[in-house]
Design a protein around this nucleic acid. Structure first.
Lengths: 246, 246
DNA sequence: TACTACATCTCGCAT
DNA sequence: ATGCGAGGTGTAGTA
């Protein structure tokens, strides 16, 4: 494809706020929060209607370069390439793409008013524990969940039958050292803020790493195996399907 | 575009391991680590040569759905749509895309042997501190950097002139509470493992959050402002350009 | 705006 | 395979 024509076509597509996708040979320089250089090769450039730019190599899940924060996009034709330049002010960043060859351009006004419905987040997990506290501790009476308290962001907290303050830290995946130190921070904060010592710390997660478990028990906390729920709310029938799948 | 033809074209492109990009109207269901549903709308489907699949809405930086771990991809024509199905075994996941309308298909064998060169990572920062320890503490004599010891991953560590053990935790961005708890964990580990008490903990970062700073000083640690370097190694001329840009 | 913590995080590295 | 920590992380929620 002729470079000049391609450059003009892209400029037009961007101007119309169409989703624009370019398969091309290019080199890329980035300056900003870090600095990067990628020598010439074949890539996919995606320019969305909100001026978000993604550049993908032919392999891998993540973009090799990108620019998301409301950039200005300008195109300029040079001798044997055209340059696509995207800038943002805060953070101060600059993305320079020199395009040497264009294999294909796709341009279309895409409309999508729907939003993703997701089940199985940590929030869903803490909701479940709040509703069924016995999943974590027989005599656990939760007061609240996912609350930014004076003590920090506690996933679920309340009291047990002995009057101990109970703090539950949820992880939807294997709990590691981070999770334990996080729990410790919350427990210490509650102890010092309330001036009490009878605080029970519990990690609720599908699994826990050995080192994390050791650290946990060393500090007098405990672990309870809990899996994140995967049913949509107000969607009774779904759990059956899920069980069939897993 | 005719759905049956589109389905065949996509199947052929995937079979040849071409990078394949589809602008289409579709609905998406995902089962796996979580569960998600996205009702009908216009999206961009990217299928790479390594069978990595990304689905993008017309806005935003991140894919709304994806599948990266060596999935099998199958296509099947139904009455008024065709289904693209991707499965992976571990983790057990399934991605179902029902395509109702195809606006464009791009297919090309992309070749890219180059790799991103990046400057300004935390590793670059700890290298710099190792080489210029006075950036952190006048009398700091580093022993090693980026070492996985029995105590954890210490960014830079060594001794000062008073014989104190010094641990430096680097962050390339604003240090938060997690950075402080991480440093604390390392310091405590070193203290208990070596049976010493004279351990100095320092956070080196361009900035630090107020709460993190309070916690840091409460625990007797300190903060030193350090910025990540942004010059490529063996690239003397570059720093000049960087200075001009910033 | 700044701070905090989650994410279907992903990715690399080391055990 | 698992554990651990960085990331140009991005993103949402909140004060």
């Amino acid at each position: 494809m002729n470079l000049t024509d391609a450059c003009a076509a892209i400029e037009k597509s961007i101007g119309k706020k169409f989703s624009t996708i370019i398969m091309c040979n290019c080199e890329i320089n980035y300056f900003g929060r870090a600095r990067s250089h990628l020598a010439q090769g074949d890539r996919i450039i995606i320019i969305k209607s909100d001026s978000c730019i993604l550049i993908h190599k032919p392999k891998g899940r993540n973009p090799v370069n990108w620019m998301s924060s409301t950039p200005e996009i300008t195109l300029s034709m040079e001798l044997d390439y055209f340059q696509l330049k995207a800038s943002s002010i805060k953070p101060k960043e600059e993305l320079l793409i020199n395009v040497f060859e264009v294999y294909s351009i796709s341009s279309h006004p895409l409309i999508d008013t729907e939003q993703l419905k997701l089940a199985g987040s940590e929030r869903d997990m803490s909701d479940m524990i709040y509703e069924k506290p016995q999943l974590v501790k027989e005599d656990f009476k939760p007061i609240n969940r996912e609350e930014k308290t004076d003590y920090g962001f506690l996933d679920v907290f309340g009291y047990d039958s002995k009057g101990n303050f109970v703090i539950v830290e949820c992880k939807r995946y294997t709990a590691g050292l981070d999770a334990v130190t996080q729990l410790r921070r919350y427990v210490e904060k509650v102890k010092s803020s309330k001036g009490v010592s009878n605080v029970v710390g519990i990690i609720a997660a599908p699994s826990i790493s050995p080192k994390a478990l050791k650290m946990l028990t060393d500090w007098g906390f405990s672990y309870k195996q809990v899996n994140a729920p995967k049913n949509f709310k107000n969607d009774e029938i779904s759990q059956e399907k899920i069980n069939k799948f897993f």
